[in-house]
Amino acid sequence: MSFISASGVKYSYEDSDKNVLDGIALKVNKGEFVALLGHNGCGKSTMAKTLNALIMPKEGVIYVNGMDTSDEEVTYEIRREVGLVLQNPDNQLVASIIEEDVAFGPENLGVEPEEIRKRVDNALKTVDMYEYRTFAPHKLSGGQKQRVAIAGILAMQPDCIVFDEPTAMLDPNGREEVLRTIKTLKEKGITIVLITHYMDEAVLADRVIIMENGSILTQGEPEEVFSQVNLLKKHSLDVPQATELAYKLIGAGLRFSKMPLNTEECIEMLEGALS
C-alpha cells in the first residue's frame, strides 16, 4: 500500500466558494521523491497542509501510513511521520540557539533527554550544520536557516518530509545547499514531496505532478511530463530551458532520441545530433 494515499480531496477556504482543491487523487510510495508543480494559487500549498493534518479535507479522505488524517486521535502521530518544511526559514525557528531549536520537536514528543541529544546531533550532521549548533539563527544565511529547519523536522524521525517551496526565498547558493540536503535525505530512504515552481528542481524527482486549479493536470516521470511541451505551454507553465531548446530544435527538423532535462543532457544530445 502507498505511504500517502488521497482520493477525492476537496477543500475550500471559508471566505470563498471556489474549491482550492477540487477532487485530488494522489498516491505517494515509501521512499519516493515526488515534485508537485503548479502556478501560484493552484492549491499546492493547501495540498501540503492536508498531508500532515494541519487542515482536513472537506470531502474525500487522506491516508498516511494507513491512518486517516481526519482522525483526531492520530493527528500528532501523523505530524511526526510527515514533517512539513515551510517557505520562510526565519518563521520556522522557535529557539534562539540552533541546537535547542532542533530539539524542539523531540521535546514536544516527550523523548528522553539523552535520546534527544543523539537525535539533534545526528540531524545537524545530516544537514551539515553541526559546527553551527551553538549559533543564534540570525547569524546564519537563508540557506543555513532552512537547513536548520529541515534538521528540526529530521529530529522527529519522520518517514516523509513535505517541502513547501523551501527555496523560494533563498539566493542561488542557499538553493543549492537545500537541494543537496534534499538529495541526501532521499538517499536515506525518506519519502519526499517537494512543492516548487522551479522546473530545474522538479527534474530531480522520480515523479512530477502538475497541478492546475485544484486538480492534477498531468503526472509521470520528469522526462515524460516535460516532453508535453504543448500542454504545459497552453497552461502557461514553464518547461526546463534545455527541454524547451530541444523542443524548438525538433520543430526545426532535428531528431532527438529523448527529451533532455538539464544542460549536460542537452549538450550530450546536441553533440550526438550534430555529429
Binding site: Y76, R79, L84, L86, N91, Q92, V94, G105, N108, I153
Partner: peptide
C-alpha cells in the same frame, strides 16, 4: 501565523 503553523508541524501541544 507562520510560526504557529511550524510549531504545530513539530507536534507542539
Amino acid at each position: 501565523y507562520d510560526l504557529a503553523m511550524a510549531m504545530e508541524c513539530r507536534c507542539y501541544q
